[in-house]
Amino acid sequence: MHPDDPSDQKLTAAEPTTGSTERASTERTIGRHRAPEPPRRGARAVLTSTPLRVALATGVSCCLGFAAYAGVRDDTPERKEPLAEAVADRAALADQRASRSLERTASPTPVSPSPTPTPTPTRAATKKPAPKKPAKPRRPKPVAGLTQAQMDNAKVIVDVGRDLDVPKFGMIIAVATAMQESTLLNYASGVLPESQDYPHQAIGWDHDSVGLFQQRPSSGWGTVAELMRPAFAARAFYLALLEVPGWQDMSLTVAAQTVQVSAFPDAYAQHEDRATEVVEALT
Rank of each mutant, 00 (worst) to 15 (best):
R229H: 02
T12Y: 07
L52S: 04
G190E: 07
K10S: 06
L185T: 15
G42D: 09
S107C: 00
G222R: 08
T223I: 04
T17Y: 10
S49F: 01
S209P: 12
E226P: 00
H207E: 11
A233L: 06
P265I: 08
A130L: 12
E22T: 14
K168I: 14
A68K: 04
L192M: 11
A263E: 06
P140C: 02
N153H: 15
S262P: 05
L164D: 10
L227C: 05
T21V: 13
D273Y: 08
V261W: 05
V279F: 08
D8G: 12
A13S: 10
S112G: 02
T58F: 05
V111W: 01
S99K: 12
R73E: 09
S101W: 07
A225H: 02
A188L: 04
G31T: 10
D75Y: 06
R40E: 13
E103W: 09
P113V: 11
R229W: 00
Q214T: 02
P77Y: 06
D165M: 11
V279L: 04
V143E: 08
Q96L: 13
Q201T: 04
P193W: 06
E280P: 01
L239R: 15
P115V: 10
S209A: 15
V259R: 08
L47Q: 15
T223V: 06
P140K: 01
T258Y: 03
L185D: 02
A202P: 02
P265A: 06
M171V: 10
R97S: 14
Y268W: 09
Q270Y: 07
V191I: 14
D95S: 09
T120L: 04
E243Y: 01
V175D: 12
L282E: 04
Q96N: 09
P142V: 14
E280Y: 05
V278I: 15
A14Q: 10
P82D: 13
T26I: 07
P245S: 13
A154T: 04
A178M: 10
F169S: 10
D75Q: 14
E277W: 13
Q215S: 06
T21C: 01
R40Y: 03
A178P: 11
R229E: 11
T183I: 07
A94C: 01
P108L: 11
D4Q: 11
P115K: 13
K136P: 01
K168R: 14
R138N: 06
K132L: 07
D159F: 01
A178Y: 12
T122H: 04
V143L: 08
A130H: 02
V210G: 06
S25L: 15
T183E: 05
G204D: 14
R123M: 00
G220Y: 06
T116Q: 04
D197I: 06
A188S: 09
T147M: 05
V244R: 12
G246F: 05
A70E: 11
L242I: 02
K133F: 00
F264G: 04
L212R: 12
V261G: 07
P39A: 15
A154R: 10
D273M: 08
K141L: 03
T12I: 13
T122R: 07
S251R: 12
T18G: 13
L192W: 07
Y238N: 03
A256K: 04
R28T: 03
M151L: 10
R216G: 05
V191D: 10
E194P: 01
K10C: 01
G42N: 12
R90T: 10
V166N: 05
P230M: 05
D163M: 07
P16E: 04
